[in-house]
Design a protein around this nucleic acid. Structure first.
Lengths: 254, 254
DNA sequence: ATGGCTATTTCATTAATTGACACGTTCTGA
DNA sequence: TCAGAACGTGTCAATTAATGAAATAGCCAT
């Protein structure tokens, strides 16, 4: 609905990628003839392109003479996600969160059962939370971590179960309590840490995900309890949730 | 090192994919000129191909006039792996292995004469093996690879024979020794790598197969030798074997 | 302004892609 | 068992479609 002056495309490249896409969408392999029919190409043409894709390693000829996509396609695609600069995609929303809350904003990714802070915006207030970029925190007791944990709970539950180390008297250290908290977090849409890692430091977090639901990180706000007024918790939570969603959408546009 | 009669490749497709690969390997974007220099293409040509990739949605022109890979590349590649729902089928048993061993667990599939790691569970120990998801290793000298090799040895023997590259002084690099090791592996039910790829990193692997006997991948455990106590080898081997069998049964239900 | 760097456009040339056809093999069903 | 259909794989001349050089236009420093 929006291709006015369609820039001329290289047909060879275009057809080659079409073949690749078709093959990747298939469970098994596909033969030259069927492939050419489906894509509206001649057999020779299809065959030739498949040859090219084979020698480049994107496609392999199976023993039964059909062709199927190799994992190279996947490897190439994966590096996009590995290199996608979360920081860039998140920076605007981090500033937004900073404006709205005046507190310290963190961008975190998961590393095993910890989160690593890969970016932050400092609070301007005199009393503030402090963690260095590159610093880590246990996944089960900070806002960013709990948000990530909740979004991948099925995968991580059994793993995290064995290492619910206690840091304050509010740290969740038994699995039943964690199950409950995670269920609430999923429902709520953002995570709350009520001083479960550092005494008197609350934090809020929400997960950032790719279109398919894969979680790649989380945004968080850390607030010393003395800075918190009535109603702030709900307000900040809502902001974090909104920001994380915006970043997720941002990523999907890349 | 082995391209005798290279089947003629479509240069347009080839160049286009080269550009795509380059862009996916980058953290940020890259301009037309730099790209053309790096790949040895003319600016016009590069520009034209980028235009094609853009209209196809694989690449995006950033506000700063550079080009970078989009998530479409990732999505296309992802479906390759999705279509083998191996990861889903294996995830529970990977966690089980992680619990039992506390070491790094890998899920690998064969890609030619290599294995590609398509999933893992990190070790919680301070000293641990590390390979990225998407990383590769030669099939003849790591646990997962040897397990797959053993299960398809009749098919692969002649192929692998010519490429027994040596990585450590324990690497099996002559075919008689490999024949013997594979026979033992088949008998034992799981594969052992005694530091044959990385010095001081041992690994254990067992193959995952479909009901018809076709091998689709392998589970593996990597252990730095300093973490190994007496009797651990037998114990871990038995666990890996059991886990792989369970995943195989899992697959047959899908 | 000026020079040096970009991205983009144009266009004639030609090389590279193409489709029709041919060949051998494998599968199917009568 | 045999015919014939469908398949994967070559071949090759015609011509399309990709190409490089050079020109244009924008951007940022000096």
């Amino acid at each position: 609905m929006a291709n006015e002056s369609e820039p001329r495309v290289d047909s060879t490249l275009s057809k080659g990628l079409a073949i690749l896409e078709k093959l990747t969408s298939l469970k098994g392999g596909m033969g030259v003839s069927e492939l050419s029919r489906e894509l509206g190409l001649t057999k020779s043409n299809t065959f030739r392109l498949l040859q090219t894709l084979s020698t480049l390693g994107y496609v392999r000829r199976e023993p039964d003479k059909t062709y199927s996509a190799t994992l190279k396609t996947w490897q190439v695609g994966r590096s996009v996600v590995e290199n996608l600069n979360l920081r860039t995609a998140a920076s605007q929303m981090m500033l937004y969160l900073s404006e709205e809350t005046k507190e310290t904003i963190y961008l975190a990714v998961r590393d095993g059962l910890n989160v690593v802070y890969i970016d932050k915006v400092e609070s301007t207030k005199p009393i503030r939370s402090w963690n260095p970029i590159g610093g880590t925190a246990p996944i089960h007791c900070v806002g960013t971590g709990k948000a990530i944990l909740a979004s991948e709970y099925r995968l991580l539950r059994d793993h995290v179960m064995g290492s619910l180390e206690r840091f304050t008297d509010r740290t969740i250290s038994d699995i039943e309590a964690l199950d409950k908290d995670m269920a609430e977090t999923q429902l709520r849409g953002y995570a709350i840490d009520t001083g479960e890692f550092r005494q008197n430091i609350l934090s809020f977090g929400a997960a950032i995900s790719l279109p398919n639901g894969e979680t790649v990180g989380a945004l968080g706000v850390s607030v010393p309890d003395v800075n918190l007024k009535d109603g702030d918790m709900d307000r900040i939570g809502a902001h974090v949730q909104h920001a994380a969603r915006a970043v997720s959408e941002n990523l999907s546009r890349l």
